[in-house]
Simulated assay, not measured.
Amino acid sequence: MKNLFLLLLFVGYSQAASACDCLMTPVRQHIKSTPYLLKGKVIAVLDDKNKEGRDYHLFLRSIGIQDTVSRGYSVKIIVQQDFKGKYKAGKIIEIHSTYSNCDMLFSAGETYILFLHKAQGNLFPTYCSYSNILDGSPASIDLVQAIRTELKSRD
């Protein structure tokens, strides 16, 4: 029993140690500073079955190994609504990860609000932003409303 408790304590600690710590600023500030803000649906998660894919990375993270060599994975998203930027509804874009502890984990078929930036010609979700799945929860409804309200006030 003591060994089980120690194992659970270790696993809990290692998960906390690999978590992404963010100091969130108001959503208005994120809207103002992000170059690309959109609502999109994931149509494909790429590279999630090979050695360098998402599952492999998650396994390494779960046993406490920080994967700094892997090239990351990407997702294809169909833009449903462009709040800010140049990607119009219906366009298919690719978003990349870097496999840091702050990366979002995407699921095919789900819809997300994405605060994005470009680095080295590729789109990435901005860390410590309000990028998140739109699951119909009060928080996701409030986020979309806050974005619409803020962008209307700028017109």
Rank of each mutant, 00 (worst) to 15 (best):
S129W: 03
G40P: 10
Q145E: 05
I113P: 01
K76M: 12
L123P: 03
N132Y: 03
M24D: 08
I31F: 02
I43D: 11
F124E: 01
I63R: 09
G64D: 10
V11T: 02
S131D: 04
Q15L: 08
Q145A: 10
Y99I: 00
K41S: 13
D47T: 13
I95D: 00
S97T: 15
A119V: 05
C22N: 11
L23N: 14
I93T: 15
I43T: 15
D55I: 12
S137R: 02
N132E: 14
M104K: 09
V27I: 15
Q80D: 09
K39W: 07
K49Y: 14
L60C: 04
K49L: 15
L8Y: 08
G121D: 15
L60P: 00
F83I: 04
K88C: 00
G85N: 09
A139Y: 13
S140L: 11
G136R: 14
I93A: 05
R148K: 15
A119N: 08
A44S: 15
K88G: 00
P138N: 07
A146W: 00
T98P: 00
L23E: 13
I95C: 04
L8M: 11
S33I: 05
Q15H: 09
S153Q: 13
E94P: 10
I95A: 09
I78D: 03
L58P: 00
C22D: 05
V69M: 03
I95L: 13
Q66T: 09
L134G: 12
N101M: 02
C102T: 06
I63P: 04
K91N: 00
K118N: 05
K2C: 05
L123F: 12
L114G: 04
Y130G: 04
S153G: 06
I147M: 06
N50K: 15
L38W: 08
Y112V: 05
S74G: 09
S70M: 01
I65R: 05
Y127A: 11
L7H: 05
T111P: 08
D103G: 05
S33M: 12
L143S: 06
I133N: 13
F124K: 02
R71Y: 12
V42G: 12
Y112L: 02
D21I: 01
M104N: 12
L58C: 02
T111D: 10
A19D: 10
S153N: 13
G85W: 01
G53C: 04
M1P: 08
S140K: 07
C22S: 06
L114K: 08
D155H: 08
A16V: 04
D135E: 10
S131E: 04
S33E: 15
L9G: 03
A119Y: 07
S137Y: 06
Y56D: 10
R71V: 04
G72F: 01
N122R: 14
K41P: 13
T126R: 12
R148H: 11
K32A: 14
R54N: 08
R154Q: 13
F83C: 02
K84Y: 01
K91H: 10
C128M: 09
E94M: 13
V75A: 09
I31S: 01
G121R: 15
D21C: 01
D55C: 02
A17G: 00
S97I: 06
I113S: 07
S137F: 03
